[in-house]
Design a binder for these strands. Structure first.
Length: 354
DNA sequence: ACTCGTTTATGAGATGGAGT
DNA sequence: ACTCCATCTCATAAACGAGT
């Protein structure tokens, strides 16, 4: 709605403004007094308008507005979407399904709990809590955009996440290293580039995407140990650096591809049919799991190779910090996620040797 | 343990080129 | 034209990670 204009009542040489069909006289035309009065009326008008918008916004409208914002907001510095917008889309789905047409000011904690229960029926507990937090954040954003009153958000804040072993939601299972036998049995069923890529990962502890996107020119081959500084990695947005050290074994694995490369812009690992495209994440994953099926071993995913690297470094050096440095973690507590698997292994062994 | 992110995992079906 | 095979796409679930 357009802002009402200040008008001139010529007959009496006064200023007036028409709000909701009503004329309000402001005083002598072109006087300070009239201008001030006009500003006051507009302020009042805007407030009334805003609060009426705050009261009419529905949950569906809020979600829609937020998603438009999210599509633009969650991007890396190359301008590509990071996937967070997608995460929101799925998080908001049950909310929209249940309460699309409810006015936001009528959406209180008990309704949010209903959504939480809906999430708990399908998701792992941690995921329930993550998505619950995302929903709350959408309402927070709504307040910041003056789409809804802050009281709505404040009330929703009182709904807590599900606590361990005190909810219906299932717990997630820990991720373990790939059994080395399975790994070795799978290798022959992979194409050459893929086989070398997974070997590269198990030796260096590189993340799947760090391996996929490795370009020949990214490698500093000056020293005895080569250095690879990925130009995109998980914590770049936080301003962290990441360097992957490529020792002699890993060098041998990628050597043929590095030698064959005609330019530094070439990816080290490329699918057989493409000129110079990296593997897609899903492509490499599904190829690996198909190879596992052929090799008749339980299917494993490339991310787990990072656990293999962590565990073997930990065993070789008996030092958690060694693993931490190689994996590039800032906090030791993060590395402990990986190292704990050793305890699991000890338990398995104890079971057998009594 | 929570917050706010980013990245990886899965499975079924689609696609596109090579070999027959 | 037909089939095989590696890889990709789609939809969505889950794990990883720094900071506090």
């Amino acid at each position: 709605m357009r802002q009402p204009k200040k008008c001139h009542h010529k007959a009496s040489d006064r200023a007036y403004v028409k709000i909701n069909g009503q004329r309000i006289y402001l005083g002598k035309w072109n006087s300070q007094e009239a201008d001030d009065a006009y500003d006051r009326q507009i302020l009042k008008w805007r407030k009334a308008k805003d609060s009426s918008q705050e009261l009419t916004t529905t949950v569906g409208e809020l979600c829609l507005a937020f998603m438009e914002h999210a599509e633009e907001f969650y991007r890396d510095d190359a301008g590509n979407q990071t996937g967070e917008a997608n995460n929101y889309r799925y998080a908001l789905r049950p909310l929209i399904k249940l309460f699309r047409n409810v006015k936001c000011y009528q959406f209180g904690p008990s309704k949010l709990i209903e959504v939480r229960d809906e999430l708990a029926a399908v998701h792992v507990r941690q995921q329930v809590n993550n998505n619950l937090a995302r929903i709350k954040r959408v309402f927070k954003w709504g307040v910041s955009q003056e789409l809804i009153p802050v009281s709505v958000f404040a009330a929703l804040q009182t709904v807590e996440g599900l606590k361990r072993s005190r909810s219906k939601a299932k717990e997630s299972q820990p991720v373990l290293p790939v059994p080395i036998d399975d790994f070795n049995k799978t290798l022959p069923y992979l194409t050459e580039p893929l086989s070398r890529m997974v070997q590269f990962q198990i030796l260096t502890g590189a993340r799947p995407s760090e391996a996929r996107l490795l370009k020949v020119g990214d490698i500093n081959t000056e020293g005895e140990v080569w250095l690879y500084k990925p130009n995109s990695h998980k914590n770049k947005w936080r301003g962290k650096a990441r360097i992957i050290c490529i020792g002699p074994k890993a060098q041998a694995v990628i050597m043929p591809f590095v030698e064959d490369a005609v330019s530094g812009a070439q990816y080290v690992f490329t699918p057989s049919d493409s000129s110079n495209q990296p593997y897609s994440l899903h492509g490499m994953i599904s190829s690996i799991s198909k190879a596992c099926r052929k090799a008749k071993v339980e299917s494993w995913s490339p991310g787990r190779l990072r656990h293999n690297a962590a565990t073997s470094i930990n065993q070789a050096f008996g030092d958690l910090d060694a693993s931490r440095v190689v994996l590039g973690h800032a906090e030791k507590t993060t590395t402990e996620i990986y190292a704990e698997r050793d305890i699991q292994k000890a338990i398995e062994i104890a079971k057998q040797i009594g």
